[in-house]
């Protein structure tokens, strides 16, 4: 008996539509984030993460409505990320029904924003998203650096130090994405995950690289993650959330079975 490891499906959305593709045979509109969220919630998802990649201002209005619609129908925690830069952005998303916001680039450009956000809204709703890439070469001690803009811009910041700093400033949770693994389906960067998880007291969500169910197990057992985030394996129905949980439970991972 104890706290369950969480499985979190992630929806990447643009102008109110799920992008990166979702394929469900028995869903009316696979691009509708509300339908997709409901579907995942019913299947036993422990939380939903909604990442907004909309660039335009008008598009962001749509995002607010989408978050409102999801929050009125999905009664599990909802995290919204993408373009969160000001306290006003956070307030807007929380008022729309988000439970947490994920701050990424804005934390790098202005770390004090994380402090202000945690002071105003509480650490429980401030997730800092960290995109890290391995920069050590073979034979060197392992080292990861923070990158922004989808992994294009190096910052020179050490990922472990950065995670510690974010928690000191008030982050209540870390969403940790390996830019090396993202999209590869080769599994999480377990060494990165474990290093960050041991460095900070708050929960870690492992992200980037899930290709099969064993990867999820590895993430929590070897990577010592508290939660695992995945998109494509669920979107394309390679596995259902129910199958993922049943498999994890078989491997001795404590999960919430519904």
């Amino acid at each position: 008996m104890g706290l369950a490891k969480r499985i979190i499906p992630c929806l990447d959305c643009e102008n109110g539509r799920v992008v990166k593709g979702v394929q469900f045979v028995d869903i009316r509109d696979a691009g509708d984030p509300v339908e997709v969220s409901k579907r995942y919630c019913d299947a036993g998802a422990d939380e939903i993460t909604f990442l907004d990649i909309t660039a335009s201002h008008e598009g962001r209005e749509t995002t607010v409505h989408t978050v409102e619609a999801i929050a009125s129908q999905v009664f599990i925690p909802l995290t919204v990320g993408g373009g969160i830069r000001t306290l006003e952005d956070i307030r807007t998303m929380l008022n729309a029904g988000a439970d947490k916001v994920a701050i990424n680039t804005a934390a790098v450009t202005n770390p004090d924003f994380v402090r202000a956000a945690a002071e105003r809204f509480g650490s429980q709703c401030i997730v800092v998203a960290i995109d890290a890439k391995r920069v050590s070469t073979e034979g060197e001690p392992l080292r990861w650096e923070i990158f922004t803009h989808g992994g294009r811009n190096p910052t020179g910041l050490d990922a472990i130090d950065w995670a510690r700093k974010m928690v000191e400033l008030g982050a209540g949770e870390i969403l940790l994405t390996s830019m090396d693994r993202d999209g590869t389906k080769n599994g999480f960067d377990l060494e990165l995950c474990r290093a960050v998880s041991r460095a900070v007291p708050v929960p870690i969500i492992a992200s980037g690289g899930v290709g099969n169910l064993q990867h999820l197990v590895d993430g929590v057992i070897e990577g010592e993650a508290d939660a695992v985030l995945a998109a494509s394996i669920f979107h394309f129905q390679e596995y259902t959330i129910g199958e993922a949980k049943a498999y994890m439970a078989e491997q001795g991972v404590e999960v919430r079975l519904v």
Partner: peptide, 20 residues
């Protein structure tokens, strides 16, 4: 507390997620 443990295993704080 900072040193919260269960069966010798360190626990994360906040207590976040689904518990019985």
């Amino acid at each position: 507390g900072e040193e919260l443990k269960d069966d010798g295993q360190k626990l994360k704080v906040p207590h976040m997620g689904w518990n019985e």
